[in-house]
Design a protein around this nucleic acid. Structure first.
Lengths: 202, 202
DNA sequence: TGGTTAATGCTACAGATGTAGCGTTAGAAG
DNA sequence: CTTCTAACGCTACATCTGTAGCATTAACCA
């Protein structure tokens, strides 16, 4: 399910998905990923993508509208659908593991996750992609909270998403919004916050 | 202390702060605030600010460099330095009150806070202003956690900033990053997360 | 009061965003 | 193999960003 599948139902690519259209799409998205890796998000301009892909810039604008859509579609194409949360035997361990992945995603260079967040403020398509990606992650990670409840680490009536947000949101906030330097313990510190929320009976 | 005071020590405004320089600054910052209120953040272009203020666009670029700096300087000029956290008698009440203020700031239209976050991804000056503003708020709000510790609601050795981030970060995350719709209970829900973190002995 | 020069005004330029109109090419169907 | 037309290529345009160089104005000091 592509992030602009709806758009493509009335825009280029719907009536003739074969041959040239698919080739254009592949060349453009390849250019996006290579540009991101080699030059970073600042260099991801429509002009640069067009030049590198050999596809004309007006065609890129017609099909993707802005760099946020390009980024969203590129991530969408490369997305692994098999992510599962770690299962370490304790809620603290599971949440710490998830947080470590987020820390890594936000501090790597170039950080696609940070690029997507930045793009989301200018591009509705990027905002939708960001939101759906993480909502999917939280839905998949809910099982970690349910396991904790069965072990007695979490209250039975606790909302899994609230626990996960309590654990993850401070990581996004510190590293992506406030750009605080990443400390060694940040993943575990806020995982403990998630544990505290889970344990609290409401 | 202005957000680009350092810049102005070597750039326009340092040697001749009187008369014309001050007038130019005032006219430009007035144009920024009125543009923000009337047209929103998307309309806040250097060209529009220059046109409205009557100051030439190259002068705006010379003194502020980008719209993020304009925004940061404008906020800085209007900033009230007297904020204090609510004192309701319970930690939950205090944190809920703080969160309600953040919810209001992020959902009002136009939201200057959201505009500043958006700008921070493109403008170092805006990023600095955002960070310093909220660090100041957390420092001032720490007293609420200390009061809670004296009442026995919080562990004595708990880090106040961690509690505040646990309470506030999910609000920023949901409303500013993920753009989830604001629910009625969101302020209190994550204030409870802060309370849980505070109560937990570490 | 006049001289110095900081600060501003102005023109020009290079690059990026995003759109409009029209010509061209190549899938898809008969 | 021919026809139709979706998708693409191309040119042109308007707007915005950000910078460079030079002319002009007005603050500040002697």
């Amino acid at each position: 399910m592509s992030s602009d599948a709806q758009a493509r139902s009335t825009r280029p690519g719907a009536a003739r998905p074969g041959g040239r259209t698919a080739r254009t799409r592949e060349r453009v998205l390849d250019a996006v990923t290579s540009l991101l890796l080699e030059e970073g998000y600042e260099a991801l301009t429509v002009d640069a993508v067009a030049a590198r892909s050999g596809v004309h810039r007006t065609t890129v604008y017609r099909r993707w509208r802005d760099t946020g859509s390009l980024l969203a579609d590129s991530l969408d194409a490369a997305r692994e659908q098999t992510w599962e949360p770690p299962d370490t035997g304790t809620l603290l361990g599971d949440l710490t593991g998830i947080n470590r992945q987020i820390v890594a995603a936000l501090t790597e260079d170039p950080s696609i996750t940070r690029a997507l967040i930045a793009a989301s403020f200018r591009s509705p398509a990027a905002a939708r992609a960001l939101r759906s990606f993480w909502e999917d992650r939280y839905a998949r990670a809910a099982v970690a909270v349910e396991r904790a409840a069965r072990r007695g680490e979490a209250a039975g009536n606790v909302d899994a998403r609230t626990v996960l947000i309590a654990s993850c949101a401070p990581i996004f906030y510190e590293l992506a919004v406030m750009r605080s330097p990443a400390t060694e313990d940040i993943a575990e510190r806020y995982a403990r916050a998630g544990v505290a929320v889970a344990a609290r009976r409401s």
